[in-house]
Each structure stands twice: as structure tokens, then as C-alpha cells.
Amino acid sequence: MNLSLYQDKGTWLHNLDPRTKLIGVAIVFIICLCFNSPIYMAIIAFSVFAIALSARAQKALWTLRYILLLLIVFSVILWPFFTTGKTLIWSWGFLRLTKESLFYGIAMGMRLSTFVIAGLILLSTTKNEDITNGLIKMGMPYPLAFAFSTALRLVPTFVGAGATIVQAQVSRGLDLESKNILSRFGKFIPLAVPMFITAIRYTNRLSMALESRGFSPESQRTLYYEPVMKIKDWLILSFMLILLIICLYMRIFLNLGVVMPGRL
């Protein structure tokens, strides 16, 4: 079963060091947090979208189209009720809609979409093991990285086991097709218990096999695949850093790109 969002396309982003991409995405996240004006957010959102297209991530994006759409709708509807501004547009009873809060809602919708798109660029251009390797090289302790990568590897196995368990119980007569959410919760037990037991029976076998292969959490080990930072990685990272500094300067010292002061 293939759940991974990775797309084997070989674009310029695929060839970057995973560290560059991890840090790059983090910088994009922070830049998004610098501004809450719709215009500024729009510029950021479209730049990130353009990068996504150059990474040929459109297929992965397409699968998330509903989430993206809902994010925008939710933000635009919700935020105006929970933030206040000066310029009143409309009011009804205690409900007030102001220009600032509406703009803020629109900006937040775009910010959230940008988060998702940026995350997707990372995931569709970087294999899971490269993400782990990048994290190790950035100082993540090996046992943690191992747990992370093993969990990533086990998820499809367990989703597959889950599907078999569903089939096993359905063939005994369990009816999972009712749409009632509460009764679904109840029917989850005949599924959750075998899932839990099957999975943790794995634990002892996996640990034994692991120790038999010389794994010990505290000692040093070689990293067979060593990611190497190339010149273009350094160039891109420097560019991103400069961009970040400019954005921080604009927000903190010039107070640009703000419709809702006091909020990120």
C-alpha cells in the first residue's frame, strides 16, 4: 500500500539536500507569520504556489483541493466573529463585522493554504528516509529518528492490517455501513482490539530482530547515506535567510503588512 505523497519527478527541488528543504520550509512558515494583510499574504501564497508548480506537485495538491478550499472558507467565516477592528461594515445584535476582521480572515485563509502547499512541496519532493537523514544530520538523536522512520514504515503495514481486520469482522456479520457516528464509535472496539494486539505482538519480534542486528540505542553508528550540502543548497539557504530578515524588518520596524495589530 502506498500512502506516501512523494512524487518521483527529479525537479530542482528533488535534488536539494533535505536539510535545505526542511529549513527552507520552516523559513516559509515564519515569513507567513510576519504578515496578516491580504495583499502581502497573496504575494507569499502565489510565490509558494509557483514553487509548488516548479516542483510538479500539482497532482498532490489536487488531492488536497477540498481541504484547501474549506480552509479558506472556514477562516473567512470564523475569524470575523472572534476578532474586532475599527471600521464597522455590518452589525446585527451582538454580532459585528468589521473591515479589519474580514481582511484578517481572508489573509488567514491564504496563510493556511500556504502552510499546506509549503508542507506539500517538502513531502512530494523528499523521500521519508531523506527527511529522517536530514533530521539526524541536523542533530536529532538517532533513537528518536529511528522510532520516527520505523513508524513511517509501519503505517502502511498497519493500515493494511486494519483493512484485513475490517474484512474479518464484516464477514462475521459486523455492519459498518451505517452512517451514524455514535454507533460507529461502538463498532470500533471489535476493530480496535485486534488492531492493538496484532500491532503490539510485533513489538517483541521487532525488538529482538533489532538487537540481533547489533542495534544499541546509546552507541555511535555510521550513516550509510550521507546527505551532502552543495553550492546551490548554500545559495538557496542564504537567499531564504536574507528574505526572512527583510520580512522581519518590515514587520517589526516598518510595521508593514498588518491589518490586525497585536496578532501574528
Binding site: 523521500k127 528516509e129 514504515r153 552507541s219 553508528r221 550509510y224
Partner: peptide, 27 residues
Amino acid sequence: LVFQDFEAQLFSTNVELEMAFGLENLC
């Protein structure tokens, strides 16, 4: 030691990395 359950003995995403796993542990 090789076990019956082959799924529970593989830790890596590709063949070469799997063969390297024990050797990495041996440093």
C-alpha cells in the same frame, strides 16, 4: 539470527540500506 517473520526483520526502505543497517550499527 534469522526469524520466521520476515516483515519484522526489515527496517529500511531499500535493499541496499537494509544490508547496511547492521553494518552501520557496527560502526
